[in-house]
Write a protein that binds this DNA or RNA. Sequence first.
DNA 1: AGTTTGACTGGAG
DNA 2: CCTCCAGCCAAAC
Length: 115
Amino acid sequence: MRDYPDKMTPEQARMFRDDVLNIVSQIPRGRVTTYGHIAALTGWPSHARMVGRTLRYTPGADQLPCHRVVNIVGRTAPGWGRQRILLEEEGVTFKPNGRVDMQRHLWEPELLLDL
DNA sequence: AGTTTGACTGGAG
DNA sequence: CCTCCAGCCAAAC
C-alpha cells in the first residue's frame, strides 16, 4: 500500500504550486523553513523535491522570500551562493560547517490558513 | 516508452 | 561531520 497520494492531476499540480508560493510568502524575516515542511503542509508530504523544482522554475518566485527555504539540515541551495548573503543580511546565523543554525532559525509553519 | 535528472530526505558507514 | 546510497516523483531527454 502506497503511503502517498496518486499522481497529481494537472489541476492538483496547479494547486500545489499555488500553495507552495503562498506558504513561502509567509515565512517571517530572519527565519527559514524546509522543503519537507512545505510539502507536508500542502498535503503532499513526499513531494519535497517538487517544492524545490517549483521555487527554481516558477516565473516570479524570485519575488518571494524563497531564500528562506533550505533543506532539512540547513544547507542552502546548490549554485545559489547569494542565498547565504540574503539570509545573513536579515540576521540568520550559520554554523562553522556552512549550514544555517536551524535550532535557532527554523520556522515550523503550524496551522496554516487561507491557502 | 525507457532513462536520467534534480533548490530532497533518511539511514548507513 | 562527511560521503555514498536507496527511495522518492514530475520533468526533461
